[in-house]
């Protein structure tokens, strides 16, 4: 492990060479938008919001997986990046049925706040209006696939932290969707421990506690780092 110096947005910074651009940026209060990344879980690299420019490379690089190197020069903001991030978030809005005004996570939603931070005030792409059925069979939680953005945080937390692997993704492409067990009702799942971690890490109102009304569902994704830390200490 070595300490390296690099430049992010004209700021000279230092970081460890096992850290990602995202980690170093975060440590220095430089905001890079993310949706699938969550501290304490494995890296997914699917949302593409954290793409940044690295000088000397034609391709954009995901900040969540790219490790910092000595002398690296990174730009996290540009008109081009903003256009890309804008369009990707618009894509998410068109892919599902996101009705913020009636959502349990209204005001506590990472998709909503990301859109706001990016300056999105309307969606110019046509909505796809998929037909998806809500699963309210679990005694404590509800899964509303209309609000799912397939970040797979629930899949990862269930597999990596809880160890149950109740959730996974089925199908592919635009037909990808979350399932529990063999695509059975969540309430019938034999593997679910009802621990609720999936609900806590869900960035939107797709997974929520029963009985919550519009805007009442507040998530606590930060608990994960605590669990991770505790586990490390036990080892």
């Amino acid at each position: 492990m070595r300490v390296v110096t690099l430049t992010i947005n004209d700021q000279l910074l230092s970081g460890r060479d096992d850290e990602t651009i995202l980690q170093v940026a975060k440590a220095h209060n430089i905001q890079i938008p993310t949706l699938c990344q969550l501290d304490g879980l494995s890296t997914w690299g699917g949302c593409r919001l954290c793409l940044v420019h690295i000088h000397g490379s034609d391709k954009l690089s995901p900040a969540c997986v790219t490790k910092v190197t000595e002398g690296m020069v990174v730009e996290t903001e540009s008109e081009r990046l903003n256009k890309y991030r804008h369009t990707i978030v618009e894509m998410l809005y068109t892919e599902g049925n996101h009705i913020c005004s009636v959502c349990v996570s209204n005001n506590n939603c990472e998709l909503q706040s990301t859109a706001q931070n990016l300056g999105i005030d309307h969606i110019s792409l046509p909505y796809l209006y998929p037909s998806r059925t809500v699963d309210a069979s679990h005694e404590r939680f509800v899964f509303d696939p209309n609000r799912c953005i397939l970040c797979t945080r629930c899949v990862r937390v269930c597999d990596e932290i809880e160890g149950a692997h109740t959730w996974d993704v089925a199908g592919r492409g635009i037909n990808s969707h979350l399932i529990t067990d063999l695509n059975e009702a969540w309430g019938e799942s034999t593997s679910c421990t009802s621990c609720g971690k999936c609900v806590e890490v869900c960035p939107t109102g797709s997974l929520y506690e029963k009985g919550k009304a519009g805007g009442e569902m507040v998530k606590h994704a930060e608990f994960l780092t605590y669990i991770e830390e505790m586990r490390k200490n036990h080892k």
Partner: peptide, 25 residues
């Protein structure tokens, strides 16, 4: 069918959802 998928999942000690995910991929 579900019976076959369950049997394979148990035999290979694998989560059911993973088997279903692979089958539908």
């Amino acid at each position: 069918d579900a019976i076959a998928m369950k049997y394979i999942a148990r035999s290979l000690r694998m989560p059911l959802s993973k088997v279903y995910g692979v089958v539908t991929f």
